[in-house]
């Protein structure tokens, strides 16, 4: 089995193939050929960039690379770039006091699952880390996470954070209107005659009860 020499990464502009720094050029070519063969159907006719890292390729090597790609897939080679030409990652802006009211100690970094769709009734997600939903969670849908749960949308279903017993876990939603909230071993349900405020809120455990607080942003202060 040949050593892993290239890495595929999907971006919104297409596929980028990263050549690992410690791989030899011949390894790169053979690994690339093999993996393109396996995934040719998956990639289709996407456009592709090859990132060669720190190395400098001769015209002959570039041609060889192009040959391997064209021979084994329908990908369209746009360019060959080096590490220096990579786009810089977006640095988040820092706003002072933005999360003043949040109990930040409750939130943890860690493995996270990002779900880019609305979870509908009957759909069930369980993940040993944080779960982030870019969409709504409808009634009848259930998210169970060992870490925190973040819903960038309306949470109407059931969210269970800190399922393995972490009472510091939190549930955050742009609109928190759940059927039930569970954090670790604490369960709460929506009040029967409920109206939900139209603003981001988060839930946490305090003295054996689930508390809900608004997330207030204090901009420019």
């Amino acid at each position: 089995m040949s050593k892993l020499a290239v890495e595929f990464k999907g971006t919104k502009d297409g596929v980028t193939i990263y050549c690992l720094e410690d791989a030899s050029f011949s390894d790169i070519l053979s690994d690339l050929a093999e993996r393109l063969k396996q995934r040719a159907a998956f990639f289709g006719e996407a456009s592709v960039k090859v990132d060669v890292g720190q190395r400098k390729l001769t015209a002959k090597e570039k041609a060889a690379l192009k040959g391997v790609i064209e021979e084994n897939s329908s990908l369209k080679l746009l360019s060959v770039q080096s590490a220096k030409e990579r786009k810089k990652a977006v640095v988040p802006a820092k706003r002072k006091g933005e999360t003043e009211d949040l109990r930040l100690d409750g939130f943890k970094e860690g493995r996270s699952l990002v779900i880019k769709k609305t979870l509908r009734s009957g759909q069930y997600i369980r993940f040993p880390g944080n779960v982030i939903v870019l969409g709504d969670v409808n009634p009848g849908a259930e998210i169970v996470a060992e870490g925190d749960i973040y819903v960038f949308g309306t949470l109407r279903g059931i969210a269970h954070a800190g399922v393995s017993g972490d009472r510091n876990a939190s549930v955050v939603a742009l609109r928190l209107a759940p059927t039930q909230l569970r954090i670790a071993d604490v369960i709460s349900r929506a009040p029967d005659d409920s109206s939900f405020p139209d603003q981001p809120e988060y839930a946490y455990v305090s003295e054996d009860r689930i508390m809900i607080a608004a997330i207030t942003t204090k901009l420019g202060s």
């Binding site: 009957g122 009634p139 009848g140 059927t179 039930q180 369960i187 349900r189 929506a190 029967d192």
Partner: peptide, 17 residues
């Protein structure tokens, strides 16, 4: 199972554990 409704009609959906 999988398409439950009785809990909603009874107004007990939020009590299900």
């Amino acid at each position: 199972i999988g398409l439950r409704n009785l809990d909603v009609v009874m107004g007990l959906e939020n009590r299900i554990v």
